[in-house]
């Protein structure tokens, strides 16, 4: 709680391991994230990226290792070397300072946009409704949805829903934001608006851990890229190195697969827009160096 000094990492994860029914999904992950840092987690499907994010805010319990967030040991009380599991209430309290955005948004469908954003500050922090609503309107403006407070989530596009979800998380004034593929459930033309909000958030100094396949975002916004495969960290470093000049063959294989997909995807989009199906037919396997979605936003 008070252990954090300016140079201590905000997230300090050591040797984190996690199994599901004997299937070891995380095999000793170490990760430090400094305050204000933006870390992008890359890795093939099933490599454990989602699981690791969920371990950080205790949506999953870990089997081994330790995770500290802002000096707080997550999920346990360390009493002289013996760990005591925290009660649900205290775990809930630990989560207040960690915002999370999900692939499928998970907005509360029975509440309006404004109610979604106001819910946690009022219910969890005990903020006055008026003050919470004023703050919520500010945040909705920040994510470009100041005109939609009374809409229900079902009336919004996916991109708008994800931006509301970001505003909802920000309403708790988190120290850390976790993003789990925030744009992968979106139609391509809606990806940019969400990435723009996230970019904006990074500029404001928010500490973020982002799982994404958006290479352009990783290259421009990330301070550090961490490549995971099969439950271990394979390679990490600045984006120019990990993405631009990967050392490990598994990273290279993954990145070249990503480029192919992006290329095919971009051409499919072009094809669908122009109605020219021939563009699909002669799409080459490996295209240019950059993904076409780099400039989203």
């Amino acid at each position: 709680m008070t252990a954090s000094t300016s140079d201590a990492p905000l997230v300090h994860a050591v040797n984190v391991s996690k199994s599901f029914h004997g299937n070891e999904v995380l095999k000793g992950i170490d990760m430090d994230v400094a305050t204000g840092e933006v870390v992008v987690l890359l890795g093939p499907s099933g490599s454990g990226k989602t699981t690791f994010l969920r371990c950080i805010n205790q949506l999953e319990t870990i089997d081994g290792g330790r995770i500290w967030v802002d000096g707080d040991l997550m999920g346990y009380d360390d009493r002289g070397g013996t760990l005591h599991r925290l009660t649900d209430k205290r775990i809930a309290a630990q989560r207040r300072d960690i915002g999370m955005c999900f692939q499928r948004f998970n907005l509360f469908p029975h509440k309006t946009v404004l109610e979604n954003v106001v819910e946690a500050p009022v219910q969890v922090k005990g903020m006055k409704r008026k003050a919470a609503e004023a703050r919520a309107m500010e945040l909705l403006q920040q994510v470009g949805l100041g005109d939609k407070p009374s809409a229900y989530p079902a009336q919004l596009s996916g991109g708008q829903q994800q931006r509301v979800a970001i505003a909802r998380a920000l309403a708790m004034d988190p120290k850390l934001m976790l993003f789990d593929e925030p744009t992968s459930a979106l139609d391509p033309e809606l990806v940019g608006e969400v990435l723009k909000v996230m970019r904006d958030l990074a500029t404001r100094g928010m500490t973020m851990i982002v799982v994404t396949h958006e290479m352009g975002f990783a290259r421009e916004v990330a301070d550090r890229v961490v490549f995971m495969d099969a439950g271990v960290v394979v390679e990490e470093g600045p984006p120019s190195e990990v993405i631009g000049n990967p050392k490990h063959h598994r990273t290279r294989a993954f990145l070249s697969r990503m480029r192919q997909e992006e290329q095919a995807h971009a051409e499919a989009v072009v094809a669908s827009v122009t109605g020219n199906t021939e563009a699909l037919a002669d799409a080459p396997g490996d295209g240019g160096d950059d993904g076409a979605r780099d400039t989203a936003g």
Partner: peptide, 15 residues
């Protein structure tokens, strides 16, 4: 996902 979203916001289980 609804429960998880609420949990992630720091809401205790009863609430």
């Amino acid at each position: 996902g609804q429960t998880e979203a609420a949990q992630a916001l720091g809401m205790p289980p009863g609430r």
